[in-house]
């Protein structure tokens, strides 16, 4: 048989303080039992909220972020029929077009691969202790502290600490 026969289910979450290659990580998710692979790549875009963005920095509370990230990929294994899941999130300074976050999922069938991939990126965005600091073309800087989706509060202190 092949090197990818059966084996335990991969469930990994990592922070990376430098650029990383996706292909070797993807290769580690291959299994003979996997008929599907789905991935998500989050890239740094050149605008946010209508403002031109020059670049950004991600700051993490590494101990907490790593622990919560591991919890999320383990939840994905428990909830979906997948054979492997891996998420890597950048920290530090990033330029436009840089890869900020990658999620890869392998599964027997595409439905579980897509669903688990979506689950992981959504949960990472809402639960993992990482903050984005954006640098704008007009010279302004800002930490992003988004409102929870369900909250209706208007006293948004999201620009606190800016400038």
């Amino acid at each position: 048989m092949t090197a990818h026969a059966a084996g335990t289910i991969v469930a990994r979450f990592e922070l990376a303080d430098a650029r990383f290659e996706v292909e070797p990580l993807r290769a580690q998710l291959l299994r003979d039992a996997a008929g599907a692979y789905a991935s998500f790549e989050g890239w740094v875009r050149d605008h946010n909220d209508g403002r031109p963005v020059l670049g950004l920095r991600y700051e993490a509370y590494a101990a907490l972020a790593s622990a919560e990230g591991r919890r999320i990929v383990e939840e994905a294994v428990a909830r979906f029929a997948i054979t492997g899941v891996h998420c890597v999130h950048r920290t530090g300074d990033l330029a436009i077009g840089d890869l900020a976050v990658w999620v890869g999922v392998s599964a027997a069938h595409r439905g579980a691969a897509f669903d688990a991939c979506r689950f992981v990126i959504d949960e990472v965005k809402s639960r993992v202790a990482i903050w984005k600091h954006e640098r704008y073309a007009d010279g302004d800087l800002q930490w992003l502290h988004p409102e929870p989706a369900a909250a209706g509060s208007t006293d948004e202190p999201r620009g606190e600490g800016a400038r």
Binding site: Y61, V124, W131
Partner: peptide, 10 residues
């Protein structure tokens, strides 16, 4: 102890 403001990864 860490006080955690709303996160914005991803």
């Amino acid at each position: 102890v860490a006080f955690i403001p709303p996160v914005s990864g991803g």
